[in-house]
Design a protein around this nucleic acid. Structure first.
Lengths: 226, 226
DNA sequence: AGCACCAAGATCGCATACAATCACCGAGCC
DNA sequence: GGCTCGGTGATTGTATGCGATCTTGGTGCT
């Protein structure tokens, strides 16, 4: 059995990412105590860890609330993400194993199949996309990050990759953007097979920046439309 | 009065950076309790925070030990630092105020004076350098990071800027390298005054990569000379 | 009516007590 | 003699209690 701290951390984190707490909502320690089934101490530790990762903000004597992010902040986060993941892809191009490349290929196929299925089955396409595409996509990026073999780089990535997930961004992709994303994946794999550091970094940067423009888009995603 | 957690965090952190604990040394919570004058709870919180920042590593049921870093790891850390601080300098070039530029100029002068004093006063030059140069240098970099106005970027920087400090790298700079470092500072200020994003980023990258080669050098800094 | 202030309730920060786990060490067995 | 297996001490993980601080609702004053 893992420690209670880790379980509290993971539970709270998943609840936030699932959108069970509204951005800006206050998280009371005792409330989380009930949800997690552990005492306040591990809950506090998990909360502090999430604070450092940027998912919640804690102010002394005032507790924690889930992070609320604005449009400008989101653009800046994507810029950082392009930098970090680009760097990771460059390192990965030098270090990645054939095994991992095979896994990436399988995941790319899975994502393509998910898109195809969503397109043929017109009803509920978006939901199926989220169910099949998103996990494969996360795994795809995680493998690359791990292949870079740099725990510090992974820690940096943790600061920026999860924030956009709070907004559940996939639904906003247009068909053309989705196709482009799939092509990026294939091109990344090609760059890895060629062990071309610059190519891999460049494609990954494009991939993330394209995603950025799919998400932070004028007039879309406003909480308060005016 | 600040919180006990924050004080514990800062105290332990400064002790590590001062070299009062050997790399790899185990940090027992009760021991730190005595040093900090607070209870184990805030000590633990500080320790976890330091773990996320990479200064210590904690393994479950085994406690914390100060991070030990190898040669290859150090090179990788400097590469990350060049990326992060380069990005920060680019953003800062767009956002920095005249006030901050004035402060940077004063700090650059202070560092130049420190080097001049160390060169004329032959005895104890290195010690004086560490006493005058290092704080000014840290402040110089901190101002740029703050000017970038990106808390996440600052958090990333925290992951990599402090690690090299554990090794107290300044003493290894040659005279030529020191002079180059001073010139980099002046050039950075010029780039900021021109609000030239690319120039600032490029100079900062050079600055960090140059430092990298002054530190991770074949045959220097081995713990176990063979 | 609006604002400042005060008190009660709630929540957080810290200290301490208890439980769980691990490392070390010595004895017994193969 | 070397290896395995408990036992014991130390250390970390978790729970809870108490004091400090903040929020909120109401009251009195301007």
């Amino acid at each position: 059995m893992s420690t209670a701290s880790a379980r509290a951390y993971e539970l709270i984190r998943s609840l936030i990412l699932e959108g069970r707490f509204a951005p800006g909502e206050r998280l009371k320690e005792e409330e989380l105590t009930d949800l997690c089934g552990v005492s306040r101490t591990p809950v506090r530790e998990g909360l502090r860890r999430l604070a450092i990762e940027g998912l919640v903000v804690v102010t002394p004597h005032q507790g924690a609330q889930v992070a609320a992010i604005g449009e400008g902040e989101l653009a800046e986060i994507y810029a950082l993400r392009a930098m970090i993941e680009g760097h990771a892809a460059g390192r990965a191009a030098m270090l990645i194993s054939g095994d991992d490349i095979a896994k990436l290929k399988a995941l790319a196929s899975e994502m393509e199949a998910a898109v195809a299925a969503a397109n043929s089955d017109l009803s509920g396409g978006a939901a199926e996309l989220n169910a099949r595409f998103t996990p494969a996509n996360s795994e795809f990026h995680r493998i690359i990050l791990d292949a870079a073999m740099s725990p510090r780089l992974a820690a940096m990535a943790a600061l920026v990759v999860e924030i956009p997930l709070i907004l559940r961004t996939l639904a906003r992709y247009s068909d053309a953007e989705l196709m482009r994303s799939l092509q990026h994946h294939r091109e990344l794999i090609a760059a890895f097979e060629a062990h071309d550091e610059d190519w891999a970094r460049s494609v990954m940067r494009s991939h993330v920046l394209a995603a950025s423009h799919a998400v932070v888009r004028p007039g879309v995603g406003r909480v308060q439309p005016d």
